[in-house]
Design a protein around this nucleic acid. Structure first.
Length: 476
RNA sequence: GGCGGGGUAGCCAAGUGGUAAGGCAGAGCUCUGCAAAAGCCCCAUCCGUCGGUUCGAUUCCGACCCUCGCCUCCA
């Protein structure tokens, strides 16, 4: 079986075939270009944002596992309405303001063990955007308004035989002309038209660039078209993002990009569009007033590790709303421990032995993931394997070669899951000394003292576990 | 109002026209000075409701109920 992916363009599961099957990446593997809409850096990222980014990381890692050479790009949106408002409030310069959140975002990605992508900043690609808008203007798809803004004309785009509304079945005549439409209307010709270039207004402060249409700044959608095409070419394999971006953001990206006619006949801007569903927290939409709004940092501050959060975010099918709960997070911790213990024991048995990866395990995992990244099935494969491995270890019927083979397969699977390895926090020296003292007390059968020492360590927030190799201290 | 997802055990969550994966929690057992950790094991006569098709439906069809999202800020 080959990798199957749900393509928002066709609203169907399709077999993944690269746009240019003969093309090779620098390492000689079949090339795949992947773009994921990245963050707007005006605040710390929340777990909803990171569900999408972990999803993107999973896609990218799985393609790699499947033998593709992936070039991955994720933009950093560092100019946008909300950013400008906050910049004005803070009194900082644009870059000064955004760099704080950009840096935090990169740290957060590392916390979640997301592989680094190329991350172009919107403000570093203003020239590309201006060039693209000029191209659209020359082709009659863009028009200026007296205030100096430039708009994309949906009407003219459709007039040259292009379809608008491919990612979602939209019926514009049935749409409610909501109150939100009015706010951004300026003087555009049609409600569906969107801004390519926004003329400078006093509230923009210093945030402004020169352009053929006068000072201003880019519209929201144009950056992704300009940067993805600049780095991946006018036509590439995969474009990812949260489901809310399908319309209007991605729809507008398609219109702008294909409107430029840079793709060549019969070539799409993007071959496969993948959209990740949102998450709920404790069954409700995340909101600050409900008290269920979590940044990644809120969770790590509570003592959760990135890999635990990552595991939970990856535990459900990406196209369905996922309910993120604190119970679930505790559950992810237990589930990971189960895997960690098993892998540690295998490591002990395998020693320095080398062996070919267990192909049964790998193919079961691959079959699950090929099914549109059915991670729930993949986890079942992993945990079935853990149980069977534990049985064999307990029965002492596993050889070191078998252990090495299982471990080799796990290493490959974990290159996709990206869980890394368990990190054990070292206890402070004074607590280790107490634990040692307790060992002596136990030897002397002074159990009252032993229990008292355990209590003393516990009051410092650490738990003593007696193991055959001596006491182990862990956070309580 | 239009469009699109969901409703499966206490919680999370797969799946199939032939009788329900996996994880967490919980019970039991092993181990243990006591614990903890870990392991094994058990845990849905039933898949929102009501009809229909079928030898057989949780899975297909219809209706209904509930719920979430999108409809130009949004991962």
């Amino acid at each position: 079986m080959a990798l199957q992916l749900f393509n928002s363009l066709s609203r169907q599961v399709e077999t993944f075939v690269p746009l240019d099957p003969e093309r090779r990446s620098s390492d000689g593997r079949p090339y795949v270009g992947l773009y994921c809409c990245g963050p707007t850096v005006y605040d710390y990222g929340h777990i909803g944002n990171f569900r999408t980014f972990v999803f993107s990381d999973l896609v990218r890692r799985y393609l790699d596992f499947r033998g593709y050479g992936v070039r991955a790009v994720m933009n950093i949106t560092d100019v946008e309405d909300k950013i400008i408002r906050r910049v004005q409030k803070s009194g900082q310069g644009l870059r000064e303001f955004t760099s704080v959140y950009e840096k935090a975002f990169l740290e957060d990605l590392r916390t979640l063990n997301c592989q680094p992508s190329e991350m172009p900043r919107a403000t570093d690609h203003i020239a590309d955007m201006i060039a693209l808008i000029s191209k659209l203007e020359a082709r009659g798809l863009a028009y200026r308004t007296p205030d100096g803004s430039v708009w994309f004309s949906i009407g003219n785009y459709q007039g040259c035989g292009c379809r608008y509304g491919v990612l979602k079945a939209l019926d514009f005549s049935q749409m409610r002309a909501g109150e939100r439409v009015a706010a951004d209307e300026y003087e555009k010709e049609s409600a569906a038209d969107f801004a390519l270039w926004k003329a400078r207004v006093p509230e923009d402060g210093e945030v402004s660039w020169e352009s053929p249409w006068g000072p201003g700044r880019p519209g929201w959608h144009i950056e992704c078209s300009a940067m993805s095409m600049a780095l991946l070419g006018p036509s590439f394999d995969l474009h990812l993002g949260g489901e809310d971006l399908a319309f209007p953001h991605h729809e507008d990206e398609i219109a702008q990009s294909e409107g430029s006619a840079m793709q060549g006949p019969g070539r799409p801007f993007v071959k496969y569009w993948l959209h990740g569903a949102h998450l709920l927290v404790e069954g409700m939409k995340m909101s600050k007033s409900l008290g269920n709004f979590f940044t990644l940092r809120d969770l790590t501050a509570k003592g959760f590790q990135g890999r635990e959060i990552r595991q939970l975010l990856m535990s459900a099918y990406y196209r369905e709303t996922f309910n993120f709960t604190m119970d679930g997070l505790a559950g992810a911790r237990s589930a990971l421990t189960r895997i960690d213990e098993c892998v540690d024991k295998l490591g002990g048995l395998a020693g320095n032995q080398n062996a070919a990866a267990d192909s049964t395990l790998l193919s079961a995992f691959t079959e699950a993931m090929d099914d549109d990244l059915n991670v729930a099935r993949a986890w079942a494969v992993v945990f079935d394997w853990v149980r069977e491995t534990n049985r064999q270890l307990a029965a002492k019927v596993m050889t070191s070669v078998q252990a090495a083979s299982a471990l080799a397969a796990w290493t490959q699977i974990n290159s996709v899951l990206g869980l890394g390895r368990r990190v054990v926090e070292e206890a402070p020296a004074d607590l280790l000394a107490l634990a040692h003292e307790r060992v002596l007390a136990k030897k002397a059968k002074d159990f009252a003292k032993a229990d008292q020492l355990r209590q003393q360590v516990k009051s410092q927030g650490w738990v003593i576990e007696d193991t055959p190799a001596g006491p182990r201290l862990k956070r309580g």
